[in-house]
């Protein structure tokens, strides 16, 4: 149903840590792999071995650079559906194929009723919807709805495929509607943010910002006073004009004669 539920029981979604993501694409290919045989199946590829290979993916990993020169940063940036609370992609849909689940807030496309008009993909600011040229319907992240409640797979595997695969642990899954949930706490602690908040679609997924660097700006730690045989006043050799080598040997001798 195209109209949005007044409220959803839960707000299931992902939290993606831009401080940890190394851009390995595991979340993208594992997503493609699971969904090629799952709810979003098929996910077709066009010209897969030809001159213009492209296909339907529900998750894609970009890399951006921000800032200039040495102060700049490289940030890997996975992007999938944010399961917005008030998404236009649902309300524009003429068929009701695009809908937001009342139970958990997952935004889905019903592949049985979608007519492939593409309007929802025009309405999404996040590029989260990809039209499947081979299947004629719209595809999008399903939040692995066919995993997270799947009694046929192991309980610990009832998480999205991308979260399960992510080698760095940069992806977290949970109920962002529950302020006590681990994901909500993570978002609070790390200053998780919304993409393009000005659209007011109120994304459920959150991004955790890259942490501040600890590089050239950092103060060097003090010289460590190495353990000494007797307490004779710290790590410096007696003031002498001897070259560094001599001072080092003097110090070593002292160290060795404990």
């Amino acid at each position: 149903m195209t109209t949005l539920p007044a409220s959803t029981g839960k707000k299931l979604g992902l939290v993606i840590d831009l401080d940890t993501c190394v851009g390995c694409h595991a979340c993208a290919t594992s997503c493609k792999e699971w969904n090629s045989g799952g709810y979003a199946a098929p996910l077709t590829d066009q010209d897969p071995y030809g001159v213009d290979p492209h296909g339907t993916w529900l998750n894609r990993v970009h890399a951006f650079e921000a800032g200039e020169g040495t102060a700049s940063r490289t940030v890997n940036f996975p992007r999938s559906c944010l399961h917005c609370d008030e998404p236009d992609c649902v309300t524009v849909c003429p068929t009701g194929a695009s809908y937001k689940r009342a139970e958990d807030g997952i935004v889905l496309v019903n592949p049985e009723t979608c007519i492939g008009c593409k309007l929802c993909s025009w309405a999404c600011p996040y590029g989260a919807r990809e039209y499947d040229y081979g299947h004629g319907v719209m595809k999008k992240c399903t939040l692995c709805v066919d995993r997270i409640y799947n009694s046929e797979i192991l309980a610990e595997d009832r998480i999205p495929a991308c979260v399960r695969a992510c080698p760095t642990g940069a992806r977290h899954f949970g109920d962002l509607g529950d302020p006590e949930s681990a994901v909500s706490e993570l978002v609070a602690a790390r200053g998780g943010f919304d993409l393009l908040p000005e659209f007011g679609m109120r994304p459920v997924n959150k991004y955790l910002p890259p942490r501040a660097r600890r590089d050239a700006g950092a103060e060097p730690p003090p010289v460590v006073a190495m353990p000494r045989p007797s307490d004779d006043g710290g790590g410096q050799s007696p003031a002498s004009a001897a070259p560094a080598v001599e001072r080092l040997f003097a110090w070593i001798d002292e160290m060795l004669s404990r």
């Binding site: 390995c24 595991a26 792999e33 992510c166």
Partner: peptide, 29 residues
């Protein structure tokens, strides 16, 4: 499934990857 490879996931009990799978491994099919 039906004699075909349907999906490949990381083995949680394996010391090397402890369940995770990289971008290439997930494209093994």
């Amino acid at each position: 499934k039906d004699g075909k490879v349907r999906y490949i996931e990381g083995n949680r009990d394996h010391p090397v990857n402890r369940g995770v799978l990289c971008g290439k491994g997930s494209a093994g099919i």
